[in-house]
Each structure stands twice: as structure tokens, then as C-alpha cells.
Design a protein around this nucleic acid. Structure first.
Lengths: 231, 231
DNA sequence: CATTATTGTCTCATTTTGTAACAATAATAA
DNA sequence: TTATTATTGTTACAAAATGAGACAATAATG
């Protein structure tokens, strides 16, 4: 964490989204001995492309390669400059606030959202954090700085992109049922969808490949499995 | 242009869009004695919110207050780091490359697009530039660094936002005809639209207020004037 | 073999959109 | 004054997309 290795004043934050049960969930970090919760983030190396840096940080934290990643906004308000927050975190970790003084400066943060298959992830806390854990979008703990606003903007952007990009495929396992895909859409939109209309629309879009059925052991007709066609 | 006043490594670029005739146009700067063309941009003061800084820079350059402004992407590739370009600009202007050394560093640029009424603008070159002039989107000169990519992404974003945000109102005078609004949409989408469908859709959206007719002096029925309702 | 829950598909009504037709009208020319 | 011309606002009808429900198929259970 040498100051000289990184671009000063520039950070990134990532809203890592997963889907489990019927809920959208986000990976949130908790810093050692502080009770402070935050989005996973990092800094940009002087000789590294921004997108690559974010992707690398994400792979380290989730253990997943080839993550679906999308930049959605850059946050640069003065109001997000609260050095006392970072100072509290460094102190609680017995870090030398002299050599890490640069972390107390004002930062402009480029925010990304990532879509991953919940079951693939083994969240790994970093040196400063106790835990890196899934929280349902609707039951987030209080977050530091403007991280709540960042989460809200991420979800709004995801909603706007839902019909244009194959969002569902990245939040589910390789093969999934139509109902599972519908639940993903419902979680993102925050509304119920009509089963038959949804099915017709998705099939008409011609983006799915159909496989064998999946037998759940329940007393009813078994649904087909689908995957997204490789584009 | 004191180094100490600005955040290092952070810049902004603005794609300033206007509409004239039947074309989308963009304000492009030309640097003194270099033949180099670029998007208008600037740097972020240490104690200024990013959005405010961009807005201020834009108002200075166009003479317009309350500009419609939207951030759309942040560009952070290593490939955009070409110190020789900025060095050429500084030398051609007889600037001291010692005290302005920081301008030769790598910059991450936050890009915005602005929509303005073409007729309201009196473009003003800044200290480093010969001219600040309108160019049709389809006939841009060769631009420095990744500025061409920035322009393309701006237009793509504008296209995606066309139905959600009242784009047309910001590119036209206060009052305009239905045909003028249609031309704006066509220029942004790059396609022809059907007159009656367009009119029906816009009117159904219930965002326009209708005024008196405008008599052009031509031998045919005069169109109504409209403005966007204040929301 | 009847029952149950869920699925895939079909049907029909409703809404939206594509396309063309038509009447209204502002200037010009006869 | 009256036809002519170009363009506009609106209506009409066909085609496509969507909403809402019906229905048969089917995987397990009792």
C-alpha cells in the first residue's frame, strides 16, 4: 500500500450483485473493530488501466474469473470527503497514519457493478476487514460515506439495462429454469411479473437455448432448463 | 493554473451538443499552432464538487447558465496516456513546461455531455486554443487521444436516453414545431422516423404544451408551436 | 388410478404501432 | 375570386405486441 504505487485521489467502488432465494444481494465489507460497513473498493495503480484494476480487485475478492462488470457512475462530491472515517478505520487496525496519510485525502470514486453467480463465490475479507458478506439489498446495514447512494444508482442502472443486456445469465448458474429467470427480473424491477407474458417475451427474444428437463422430485410437471446463447 | 489548486491525475471532458439545420453538432477546440483538435475539458479544483466544476467550466466556455448536463462515462485506459501530445501543446504556446509538468502526467477523465440551444451559444476559445467551433458529428476533424471514442459513447448514451429524458427540449429554442423536434430525434438516432407515428407518440407522452401557430410565409398550412412542460 | 401443483402453450381481448388516407389551411398564381 | 401547391393535424384501418385467462400435459403422491 505504498503511496507511490497508486494514483492519488482516485478510488473505485464495486457493487457486487448476486441472487439467492428470491433476493438480490450485495457483498458488503465490515472493517475490523469499527462497526463500519462499506462497499468493497480499491485504488488505481499508476501503470494500470482502470477497468483492469477493478477487475483484478474483484477477482481477488470473489475468487471468480471473467466477471461481468459495468461502470455506471463516478462520484465526486465534496460531501463525500470525510477524513475522520478513514482515520477511524486505520486507527482501529493499528496502522501507521503517517505513511498512510494519503488515504485521508479527498477521493473521487469510479463505481462499477458486477453480476455474479451467488453459488460460485467464496467472499474473502482483505487486510482491513473482518468480513465480506452477502446482504439482501433491502436489508443493508448503514454504510459509510455515500455508499448507500452508490448502491441505489447501481440498481437503477441495472433496471434500465435489464432489457438491453443479458443480465439474468450472469446472476444465475449456467443452466436455469424459466421461473428462476423470472425471479431475477422481479428482484431487479421490484415488481411481480406475469408468468405467461414473461415467458413469451423471453422466448421471442430468441436468446435462450433449451435443454433437458429438471426433475425436482415435486408432484408436478418438470420445467425445462435453459442457458443464454453465446453471442 | 497552479498545480496546487487542482487534483492531480483527474480531468473532465465535455461533449457539448447542439442542433442546427438537420445536424447534431459538437463544440471542438483547436490548440494554437498545433493543428490539434480536442474536446473542451478541464481540471477539478481541490475544494470543488466534480459536477459543479464541470458546470462552471461549461458556462465560461459557452456563456450559458443552467446547462443540461449528464455524466456518462469515465475513461481510464493507460492507452490514453500520451504525454507528448500535451507537451506539444504547451510548447506551441510557449508555456513553461517546468511549472506545468503535472499536465504531462497520466489523467483519468470523467466525461459529460451537455445539450444546448445552438443559437444561444457564443463559443469562447480559452488561453490555449485558437478556436472553439461547431462541427457536425459526421464531419469531425481528427481528435487527440481517445476523444473520438468519447464522442461516440456520448451519442450512444444519448440515444439510449432519448425516450426517457426530455432531450429535445434542451437542443431547441423554447418554442419549436413538431417537425423540428422530429429532426432532432432523427439526428440522434441516425434514422428517419414516420411523421404520424412520431407525432402521436410525442403527444401521447403528454409532455408538450401547445401554443399559437407559426406562419412561415410558405404556401401551406402553418404548424403549431410547442414547448416542453416544466416538470 | 385419482389427486395435486406446476408447467408449456393456446386463445381471445386489449393496447400499441405501422401505414395510409383525408380534410384543413396558408400562401401563390390564374 | 378561385384554383393550385405544399404541408399539417387528425382519423381510419391493418398489423403487431401485450394482458389476462383457460387448458391440457405431466411428475410425484396416496
Amino acid at each position: 500500500m505504498q503511496k507511490s504505487d497508486y494514483l492519488p485521489h482516485i478510488a473505485y467502488d464495486s457493487v457486487i450483485l448476486g441472487f439467492s432465494g428470491k433476493d438480490l444481494k450485495i457483498l458488503i465489507m465490515e472493517y475490523h473493530n469499527t462497526g463500519l460497513f462499506a462497499l468493497p473498493g480499491g485504488f488505481v495503480k499508476k501503470n494500470e488501466t482502470l477497468d483492469d484494476e477493478v477487475r483484478r480487485g474483484l477477482e481477488e475478492r470473489t475468487g471468480i474469473k471473467n466477471i461481468y462488470l459495468e461502470q455506471f457512475h463516478t462520484f465526486g462530491d465534496l460531501a463525500r470527503y470525510q477524513p475522520e472515517v478513514m482515520e477511524a478505520i486505520l486507527k482501529a487496525n493499528n496502522k501507521d497514519t503517517k505513511t498512510l496519510q494519503w488515504l485521508l485525502d479527498r477521493f473521487i470514486s469510479v463505481a462499477y457493478y458486477a453480476l455474479i453467480n451467488y453459488d460460485d463465490v467464496v467472499p474473502r475479507p482483505d487486510a482491513l476487514s473482518d468480513s465480506c458478506q452477502w446482504y439482501p439489498v433491502k436489508k443493508l446495514p448503514k454504510l459509510i460515506l455515500d455508499h448507500k447512494i452508490i448502491v441505489e444508482k447501481a440498481i437503477q442502472t441495472l433496471r434500465d439495462n435489464l432489457d438491453r443486456k443479458s443480465v439474468g445469465g450472469n446472476l444465475l448458474p449456467e443452466k436455469f429454469t424459466m421461473k428462476e429467470l423470472q425471479h431475477v427480473h422481479e428482484a431487479i424491477l421490484g415488481t411481480k411479473l406475469r408468468r405467461t407474458s414473461f415467458q413469451r417475451k423471453i422466448l421471442a427474444a430468441d436468446v435462450l437455448k433449451r435443454y433437458e428437463k429438471r426433475f425436482s422430485g415435486k408432484a408436478h410437471k418438470a420445467p425445462y432448463l435453459y442457458s443464454f446463447k453465446k453471442s
